[in-house]
Design a protein around this nucleic acid. Sequence first.
DNA 1: AAACAGGCCTAAA
DNA 2: TTTAGGCCTGTT
Length: 307
Amino acid sequence: MIFEKTLCENKIKAVKLSGVEHFSPELVFDCGQSFRFDRVEDSRHECQFSGVAHGKYISVAKDGDCIYVYNTNEDEFNSLWKVYFGLDRDYSEINSSILSLSKNPALADAVKKSSGIRILRQDPWEALCSFIISQNNNIPRIKGLISSLSAKCGVECDVSGMERHVATAHKSVVGATYSFPTPESLVNLGEDGLRVLKTGFRAKYIYDAAQRVLSGQTVLADIDGMETKAALDELCKICGVGPKVASCALLFGHAKLDAFPVDVWIKKVLLKYFDEDFSPESLGEYAGVAQQYLFYYERYLQSSKGE
DNA sequence: AAACAGGCCTAAA
DNA sequence: TTTAGGCCTGTT
C-alpha cells in the first residue's frame, strides 16, 4: 500500500492510496461487523461508502487497487483511518496463518471467496453498545435503532470536506452524520428514554453498560491490555452482555483478532463443515478473522445459492 | 398468524 | 450445571 497524494480542491479534502490489496468496501461494510456506513452514489467511483466513526464523518471509495478517503488529511489518515480500516495489517500473512492451521476445505474456500474483508478497529464503546443492540434483532432494525440513537444523542459532524452532493444525499438517512452517542449522553437520556426509541428490552442493557462505563466500573481502555479470555469475562459482567456480544465487542472494538463470536450462522457452519471437537483456538491468533470469513461465506455466499 | 431475527436473563430441574 | 420460556419490535 502506497500513500499517493492528498487531494485538495474546492474545499474537498481527501487522500488517495494505491496498491491496496485485500480491501473491499462492499465486503467490509456488508459483512455485518458495523452498522453506521451506507453505500452512497457517486459517479466518480465504482463504489463508495459513507458514515461516522470515531466522531468524524468520512467517505471511502475504491477504484481498482486505489482507495480514496474523503474529509480527512494525510496525518489523520495515518493516525486514525489506517488503523480503523485495518490497513496496518498484512492480510496475506493472516490468511496464510489461518490456512496453515486448518485443512478444512470449507474454510479454504471461505478464505478465497472472502478476500477483501478486513476487521475494522471500531471505537470500543460503539462496538460494545452496537452489539448489545444487535441481540435478537435483524440488521436493518439494528441500523435503524443506532441511527435514531445517534440523531437523538450524538453530535452533528463536519462534512465540509466532502463532495457536497454526496453528503447532502446521505443526510436523508436519519442520524447519518451524527456521532455515536457517548455513555454519558445515554445515561442522561435514561432507560425510559431509550425505551421510547424502541430499543425494547435492550433499554435496560444499554443503560447498564453506559452507566458502568461512565462510572468507571468498566474501563474499556484496560480491556486492550487483557488476555482475550479475561477480557471476555470482564465484559460479561455487564447485564445483557453474554459471550456472543462480548466476543463481537472484542473482535471489532479491541483488535482481539482471536475472539471468535458464535452466533446462529456460525453454529450452522460448525455443524455443517467441522468436527464436533472443533475449537476456535485451533485457528490461532487470527481465529476471529476466520470466523468473519466463515460467517460471510455461509450467510451471503452459500445460502443465496439455495440449499 | 406464527415464526423468526447475528442472545441473554431468569426460573426451574 | 444445564435447559426451557420469555422478551420489545418489526417483518414475512
